[in-house]
Design a protein around this nucleic acid. Structure first.
Lengths: 159, 159
DNA sequence: ATAAATTCAGAATAATATTCAAAATTATAT
DNA sequence: ATATAATTTTGAATATTATTCTGAATTTAT
């Protein structure tokens, strides 16, 4: 999947991205007003941003506590054959409670973000799912006590 | 800000959340079809989910590379007066490149997720912004080499 | 400078959101 | 269990918005 670079995005595109990032249910009419152009023109650009995979998804953010997901943890792991081991990362990614899987530089190899109901369910997850992941040498689990900021918005730079 | 618990959300609410999480630009008509109810009824529920802060935002996910944000890093920090030090966390949260700030249990105190253009801009950020954060004893920066999964979707449990 | 390609505006139509009153359902109190 | 109150849902009417398309304008490449 080829990804377009910033070069192809002009000021209007970036403005659309900022608006959409802030509120993806904004109407074309509203965007058109703010950008001072016709709704049809805005729509055209939005379609292209979707096609070019600049916009990858429209999503609703849901309060995790409201759906009983009260525990957030970061797990970092060492692997036996260091990197190159995409299998391990893919196996981690398949676990649905795993929100993020990063391959990292430094002491450990993988950094994983996990959300579960409580510590008991995290324990269950580790017993049932993590234990089956290949090539793991060691695991260090860090429990989040409080999340002060959790933005998904990107700081979209000027052209 | 009071947050409602799962108890008040019935099966239909959870189904709406799943649909909205998957595609926040889905129409009421489409949701109504899938849920086998009238569009107006769906709308009513959505409004309530917004009011109750179950849905906190509608957002477009943007490919970071497309807007030239190619570097992702996690920074963990030790603080001098351990926790209780909300000032430090708040100061971190104010930095716009900082996407997440978590207060964590364990060796370190804060875990921060940062996104910048490249390592040079991360360096600049650390020099200009992080250096001014109070109460920091030590910093450990972990560079992400590759992100295998980065979901924002929650696994919404059954009623 | 010219031609080609792209982008945009404006109008027409299709689709959707929104509102509201009445009916249905659910919860509550007796 | 029954009556009452409160909430939720529906269905129809209206307002708003999305979408399409063609010609004009702008941009880009030659």
């Amino acid at each position: 999947m080829i990804v377009e670079s910033n070069i192809n995005l002009d000021k209007i595109d970036l403005a659309i991205l900022r608006l959409m990032q802030e509120n993806s249910r904004i109407s074309n009419v509203q965007m058109a007003k703010e950008l001072e152009m016709a709704p049809s023109g805005v729509l055209e650009r939005v379609k292209k941003l979707e096609q070019k995979n600049v916009i990858t998804q429209y999503t609703a953010r849901i309060n995790p506590a409201a759906v009983d997901l009260k525990l957030l943890a970061f797990i970092s792991m060492k692997a036996s054959h260091s990197l190159g081991c995409t299998d391990t990362a893919n196996a981690l990614a398949k676990i649905e409670e795993v929100q993020e899987v990063h391959i990292i530089a430094g002491d450990d190899c993988y950094l994983v973000k996990v959300r579960t109901t409580d510590s008991a369910s995290l324990m269950a997850l580790m017993r049932n799912s993590f234990s089956k992941i290949p090539n793991i040498l060691s695991i260090r689990t860090t429990i989040v006590l409080e999340t002060v900021k959790e933005a998904q918005q990107l700081v979209i730079p000027e052209k």
